[in-house]
Design a protein around this nucleic acid. Structure first.
Lengths: 144, 144
DNA sequence: TTACATGCAAACGGTTTGCACCCGG
DNA sequence: CCGGGTGCAAACCGTTTGCATGTAA
């Protein structure tokens, strides 16, 4: 189970005629080390902190590959730089983002998935990915 | 009706101790000249094309003000630069974005608004704004 | 008259790229 | 061995900012 994502990545690279280098392995392992949002800069420092290494250039290049094979998806945020999260082994979900404390609440809604399907059918649109985010104030921050 | 947005903007500026300069008026007028997405670069050239002028710096500064007073909102997109649309006089809506032809289909859904409310209530979250976008292939592009 | 705004050009900061060297298969 | 990969530093490009000058109220 733990190494499933590596198997997927390895096979994807192979099919593409690419190699699984130690940098790519380090990035993959860090991306899957815990669930949550991250950005390329996070990754750069966390990989260093673990005594491994990969340049920023390799991180950006590898993230591109991980998007391509569907192991990672891009999470859209208001601030200007890209955020990502790994998706293998996780149901797709949406986000509530607190404008005060920055907390991200994950949201799973069966109803939302259904509604989404309906809306696509109505427009005869084939949906490949979606983003649903609400910004506002979380329980704790509202209390203050 | 036509000049309602100017009234709103003027009053907002006044309250802030700011002035309605001709550059700001030109930007406002261009932003409201038709409904749809635009980015700062679009705006820059369209304003020129109409024989008015405003520097990029003023465009960025003015967009900030328009966001602040709620006449414009930021639309999130996958590509890296910001997109906006004016919202005064329009119901909030969501988007279907075609990955092939780039077409943006507007979506209005009462059910979605309701669902959103429910989800917020469940988490005791006060929603200030939301984004819902689906990316995929539109009717025409699917046919090909 | 006097803040506040503007335009310009330089600075910024995240991301991409060219290139010489490196290494996985 | 060799084609793809890496790190570095420079290039990119959308956005922001400092500053001298212009202008709305």
């Amino acid at each position: 189970m733990k190494q499933m994502e590596e198997k997927i990545f390895r096979e994807f690279l192979e099919k593409k005629g690419c190699k699984l280098t130690k940098e790519r392995a380090a990035i993959l392992s860090e991306v899957f080390s815990k669930h949550g949002h991250f950005d390329p800069e996070d990754l750069f420092f966390k990989i260093r902190a673990k005594g491994m290494k990969a340049s920023r250039a390799s991180i950006y290049r590898t993230l591109q590959l991980l998007l391509e094979c569907g192991l990672v998806e891009q999470v859209e945020r208001v601030d200007k730089h890209a955020h990502y999260e790994h998706i293998f082994g996780h149901k797709h979900h949406d986000h509530l983002i607190c404008l005060k404390c920055g907390k991200v609440i994950q949201l799973f809604s069966e109803k939302l998935s259904k509604l989404q399907e309906q809306l696509c059918k109505k427009e005869n649109f084939r949906c490949v990915s979606h983003t649903f985010e609400m910004k506002g104030y979380c329980e704790k921050c509202r209390a203050r």
